[in-house]
Every structure is written in structure tokens, then in C-alpha cells.
Amino acid sequence: MSVDIDTVKRVAHLARIKVTDDEAGQMTGDLNNILAFVEQLDEVDVSDVEPMTSVVEQSMKKRADEVTDGDYAADVVANAPASEDNFFMVPKVVE
């Protein structure tokens, strides 16, 4: 399988990364090289093989459903590019 430049632009939009036409062109070549490389996997017969979900055999740990953390909103927003009254500030989303 290979991708064309329009697919790369669509994927870049899905990933929320702005790309120029030049960058999209360069990425199209790079991505096709990588996709050609991973095509080797087509040689492997994976019928009746379960996909791996965890490398370590351990049942999922569950903690008690209780509050153990919190009450430091100022710490949470401390690194935000814009914040006010412990809220993250973003451009207007709803008119």
C-alpha cells in the first residue's frame, strides 16, 4: 500500500499538524518508504494467532475506588501557556 500527497495532508489534519505543500511532498516519500519496509509482514502467516495485549502475564491491577490525590489545581495549570483562576484558557470554541 502507498499514500499520495492528499492522503498525507488528510492524515496530518487528523493528527492536528499543519504541513506546507513542500513538507507534505517530502512526508509522502518518507511515509511510502516506511510503508514499503513494513510490507515484509505480509510474508508472515498470522491466521490463528492472537494479537499481543501484554508482554507480561499479569492480571490488570485494580486499586480501591477512593480519592487519594488532588486539591492542587494551581500546580496543574502552572505550566499552561494561558490560565486564569485555575482554568486553562483557550480560543473561543462556542459562539
Binding site: V38, L41, V44, E50, P51, M52, V55
Partner: peptide, 11 residues
């Protein structure tokens, strides 16, 4: 999904 199946075989 295919890659995760190959991963099972590698392990």
C-alpha cells in the same frame, strides 16, 4: 492488528 499478532510470534 497484524503487527500485534507478529509480536505474539516474536515472543
Amino acid at each position: 492488528l497484524k503487527a500485534q499478532k507478529v509480536r505474539t510470534l516474536i515472543k
